[in-house]
Simulated scan of single mutants.
Amino acid sequence: MGDLDHGRAYNGSVHTPTESAVAVHGLHKKFKGRHALRGVDLRVHSGEVLGLLGPNGAGKTTLVRILTTLLKPDSGHAFVNGWNVTVAPEKVRATIGMAGQYSTVDDRLTGFENLYLIAKLRGAGRHSARHCADDLLSRFRLSEAAGRTAGTYSGGMRRRLDLAAALVGSPPLVVLDEPTTGLDPESRLDTWDAVGELVAGGTTILLTTQYLEEADRLADRIAVMDRGQVVAEGTSDELKAAAGNRLVVCVAQDDHLDAAARAAARATGAAPTVQRRARRVVAAATDGPTALGRALTALADEGVEVLEIGLSRSTLDDVFLALTSRAQQQAAR
């Protein structure tokens, strides 16, 4: 049997053969009458990195807690590595690794002792646990610090140790819940390199993050959540292409900005953003070159002295802001 089919009813079975590492359908969750999840449908294909984006309160953490069996959904179904998260939580936990935004390692233990202990807790014998700890320390470039207590590690080293701990037992799925929150830029790059090593090894990763650059760099596909729903899915390039181009106008004088904004609105039919310090006006331009021609005419009509004008591709930031603001507008109606 192939992947779970949204057209077929879920029956609450313990295990369902699936080609997806994660298969979620119609997931709902409320807290004190407030919707945290509103019918979430989501898949993470085996061997891929799925980046889960969304503002605070979007439902990302609630979804992750359900997938890792820390919460039960009010309704809907979720399967992780084929196991039903509510019917067989112990089976789910045996097939996943988890690394969150806060370190889970014991500062009083050495790097080796942390990994050795986790391997023992997962049922490994002494020889196997030692081999596992040594192997992971080598993979994450921590062998030289293996005998030091984790409390002496830098932020980047601690996060690498966290990721190594999540791989004890070689789980087919690793959940990274905002793994670089609070890290300095150097430690964040260090963590990205470590995640890249996981991906190269074929590990499936569900990555939640608020750093758009992180998702752009690491994720094969991206799902954007807002107000408890998945509002868009696709590769980074697909999402950017769907958002269209941007018209960018730089003017010579501050007092020409408002006129340039009027011209950009006429040309694109979109509400422009005025960046006063940069003397720049930006507006979404769905029809690209045609909008550029209209903008040149409109700017001339307004008497605007233009320093620079052009089209640029939408960034992931543009996609994120457009999608989440759109969802909020629809919910307010």
Rank of each mutant, 00 (worst) to 15 (best):
L121Y: 10
H15R: 13
V230M: 03
L27N: 00
H256Y: 08
S187K: 01
R108I: 10
G39N: 05
L247R: 14
L183G: 00
C132I: 12
T209N: 05
R65E: 08
A327H: 01
M157W: 00
D184H: 08
A300Q: 10
T235A: 05
A252W: 13
A165Y: 01
T180V: 13
G54R: 14
E233G: 03
S75Y: 07
W192D: 02
I118N: 11
E178M: 03
L207D: 04
K120E: 08
V92H: 07
A243T: 06
L173Q: 01
V195G: 04
Q229Y: 03
A164W: 02
P289W: 13
V248H: 08
G155C: 02
Q253K: 11
R8V: 14
V40H: 02
E48A: 05
V231S: 00
Q275P: 10
V85K: 06
A133L: 15
G7L: 09
S46C: 09
L136R: 00
R43Q: 10
G147I: 15
S138W: 12
V319G: 05
K30E: 05
A259R: 11
G125S: 08
L183T: 03
H127A: 12
V304E: 06
V281N: 15
G57I: 13
R280Y: 13
A36Q: 04
P179S: 06
A9Y: 06
V49M: 13
A219P: 00
A261K: 13
E90R: 12
Q229R: 11
A285N: 09
I222H: 09
L109G: 06
S312P: 05
D3Y: 08
L173F: 01
A300C: 10
E19W: 05
G2A: 14
T95I: 14
D254K: 15
F79L: 12
G2C: 14
H25M: 15
T297G: 10
R148H: 08
A200V: 12
V49D: 04
R38A: 01
S236W: 06
A99G: 07
A58S: 02
M225A: 01
L207S: 04
K32H: 15
D190V: 14
L63E: 02
V249A: 05
G201R: 15
L37I: 02
T290G: 12
Q101S: 11
R38G: 00
D5Q: 07
T209K: 09
H256T: 13
Q275N: 15
A165M: 07
G156F: 08
T204M: 14
L206A: 05
Q229L: 06
S138A: 10
R279T: 03
Q330C: 01
V230H: 06
H127D: 15
A21L: 00
E144T: 08
S46G: 12
L67A: 06
T16H: 12
M157D: 01
S312G: 14
L239E: 02
L247E: 07
R65Y: 11
L176T: 00
R122Y: 12
S143R: 10
N81H: 09
